[in-house]
Amino acid sequence: MPVDTLSTRLTGLRGFYRAGYQSVLAYRADLLFGIVGLVIQATLTVVVWRVLFTGHDQVAGIGSATAVAYAVLAACLQAVVMPWQFSSLPLRVMRGQIGVDMIRPRSLISQNLAQAGGTMVGRLPLGAAGLVTGLALGAVKAPHSVLDLLVSVVSMALGVANILTINLLVSMTAFWTLEIGGIMILYRFGSAFLSGALIPLWFMPEWLQPIISWLPFQAQIYAPLSIWFGTRHGADLVGTLALQLAWVMVLFLLLQLVWRRAVHRVVVLGG
């Protein structure tokens, strides 16, 4: 039996990563429309926020420029990390192809994560297009310091890990029920609201803020962007990163747990 080193493991997964990446490019029209769409929506979003701020200097301590930039960056991030079909797992379960996946020499979790990672990379042009639009409209703000920039990039990586894990967790409901359309929508739009992709936590009602900050979703988009805009310092900054990391670990453990039960289900009940 061949030795399973880290490097052979990674080579094994490269295929799945590439499959995800290429599946984005295979539907060229989808990607092009995605780009056009983001350009239009970023523009409209900028207008909405600017109009909202007419007559206000600051709301909840946040100025117009920051709010507008936040909206654009959040839209770009979301477009990259949240494709309409964020996992092929439900479809494969439904078609009974999951058995084949489980025979493969890599764990199903890493297969799916690699593929989702590839899909994200394939969608980077979308984010770039949104960013360019934002820049053209003078709506993007750079971080205050290089440190903020570096830390927010680390924070974004943790946010992406968080999203990938939760996406896969939610997709795994497919092992228990065939019709998961409703659940997917619930998750997609619920998380868009709770992650701060639509509205930054700054503007949420006071009673809602503590609830949201105890959920894992705010670690996806709100956390890295709040660092980007320099609203966190010192202990707050470190605490944010620590919380993000903790969420990723907890979620990953949960994923293993759920996966174990799913395997049990497939093996014992025949899917």
């Binding site: 019709e179 998961i180 359309g181 409703g182 659940i183 929508i185 739009f189 609201f193 639509l198």
Partner: peptide, 21 residues
């Protein structure tokens, strides 16, 4: 039958987030 409730809830959430927004 199981999907009934989650589907209706999904529909409400989809548009509901906009209302919330």
């Amino acid at each position: 039958r199981i999907s009934f409730l989650s589907a209706i809830l999904g529909g409400m959430v989809l548009q509901g987030t906009q209302l919330l927004f």
